[in-house]
């Protein structure tokens, strides 16, 4: 992680704006990628045929990443779809697509959102001003404002795990084996093989975002904005409150 950058903000933030001039303006951030190993291009293939809608991924992500209450970096949208009189259950795990052409990137006025050279789109929470512009620009509702850090938040592909040689939390714990993570630059990887052989689809291809989360068995009804009876899910009455009864913090 770019600690120097963070320290810079720490030091300078409290001081006057003038101090900012000392910082090297991340002018390159506008387009250039940084961090990560360009040898890799991380991607996920979601085989929805294997998803059982158990939400293990959803909760694992929360636990792994200390996602605040009532917020989600990933969720498995679950639908009942009826076609030709036949009803069936449809699951659709959703997360940030780590788009190759990510619309959340150019809109960011501070460069806090950037793409690593391995394709992972991340937010530097020491730089982000929480303007929410990227949240608007993402066509997938993959981003939100984290009420604890007061900055933009989203799936990081668990960079801290991936960089440690591990798998993302949601992939590790996927009960159905629906989430498959790997390196598209490695032709021998499972994701490469699946992308080659299974002709997977992406969500909202019309947006031109070129996602790096692919879906096998994606229901065309669910590819874009879903039309139907909305869920009765409601954010808690106290959306900003932490866990209702403050948990022990040992």
């Amino acid at each position: 992680m770019d600690r120097s950058r963070r320290n810079f903000c720490l030091g300078a933030g409290a001081a006057a704006v003038g101090a900012a001039a000392l910082a090297a303006p991340p002018a390159d951030a506008a387009a250039a990628r940084k961090g990560g190993d360009p040898a890799n291009r991380w991607a996920m293939v979601v085989d929805v045929r294997k998803c059982v809608g158990c939400q293990a991924c959803t909760v694992a992500c929360i636990m792994e990443n200390a996602v605040p209450a009532n917020s989600f970096r990933t969720i498995v949208s679950t639908y009942e779809v009826t076609e030709g009189g036949r009803a069936g259950t449809a699951m659709l795990p959703r997360l940030c697509n780590h788009c190759e052409d990510a619309p959340c990137l150019p809109v960011c006025p501070t460069g806090a959102t950037f793409q690593r050279r391995d394709g992972i789109v991340v937010v530097d929470n020491t730089v982000c001003v929480g303007c929410g512009y990227c949240v608007q620009a993402c066509p997938y509702d993959a981003r939100f404002i984290n009420h604890e850090t007061r900055t933009a938040d989203k799936c990081t592909f668990c960079v801290h795990r991936v960089d440690a040689g591990l798998l993302p939390a949601c992939v590790e714990t996927c009960v159905g084996g629906a989430r498959i993570f790997g390196d598209l630059n490695d032709p021998g990887s499972t994701v490469s093989r699946l992308v080659r052989t299974q002709a997977p689809k992406v969500l909202k291809p019309g947006q031109g975002t070129d996602p790096r989360v692919f879906y096998i068995g994606l229901d065309p009804n669910l590819e874009g904005k879903v039309e139907g009876t909305p869920t009765l899910w409601r954010p808690s009455a106290r959306p900003h409150a932490h866990a209702p009864a403050a948990k022990e913090h040992a």
Partner: peptide, 29 residues
């Protein structure tokens, strides 16, 4: 928040991974 945003206490542990604890182990690929 004008003041608070600059306070270290409001900052997550890591600039990218936020408050995620360090992974349980690492493996050299």
């Amino acid at each position: 928040h004008l003041v608070g945003g600059a306070r270290a206490a409001d900052r997550p542990d890591d600039a990218i991974s936020g408050n995620a604890p360090p992974p349980e182990f690492r493996v050299d690929p």
